[in-house]
Amino acid sequence: MMHWQAALSGIWQSPYLGLLLTLMSFQAGLVLFKRSGSKPWLHPVLVSAASLCAIILLTDLSYERYFESANFLNQILGPVIVALAIPLYENINLLKRYWFAFVVSNVVGGGVTIFMAVAIVYLGQGSDVSVNTMWTKSITTAIAIDLAPGIGGVAALAAALVMFTGVFGAMIAPSLLRLFRINHAAAQGTALGVCAHAVGTARALEMGSVQGAFAALSMCFMALLCALLLPFMLS
């Protein structure tokens, strides 16, 4: 006699279920992303997070149980942030040569995007938590979710805002840059890195290696700048 129900509930109760579902949905998302010809709105993180939300809403798998199981992925974000020092160092020659134009466009561009976003949510009568979280909108997710709780925001909202910003930025960047006739590789890369961080960097790498290097550099620089300044400004 077979114990189907016991076997199934064994799977369902497993402490690894959340982790397994995350990995599987991410892999499915990756396949879908490649098949679609890398459409930014089909970004694997979006597809995976949306399908996991659906699973949690539709089944009796609770969010708490899911998060407990998948928390491992959250915990290794620390060493990953440390590892960002390596691409930053590898691109140090580009930074050494053009540090002035690069730093100015990052500080000015990053400042405009963040203050504008915060001001719009504040004027639109958003709650304090949303306003505080908005400060992290243009930093790469790894650092945004680390930073958000410390400045009165929420990590989950920060992750969603960062993703939304990145996907939208990567989606419109090519046509917007064409419209304004910005065909300078370094400028294209920097703009993508400032606005759309990791997703933008992936898009920039598709445009060319110079764009990719500057985008990666901007992403790291913005993250560093915000991580160093925001806690002092807001706490």
Partner: peptide, 20 residues
């Protein structure tokens, strides 16, 4: 190795949006 799978690590935090 860890940076090439960077985006996988954002998923649990992203799913947290359903609480909000």
């Amino acid at each position: 190795t860890i940076l090439s799978h960077l985006s996988l690590l954002f998923i649990p935090a992203g799913v947290g949006i359903m609480v909000h």
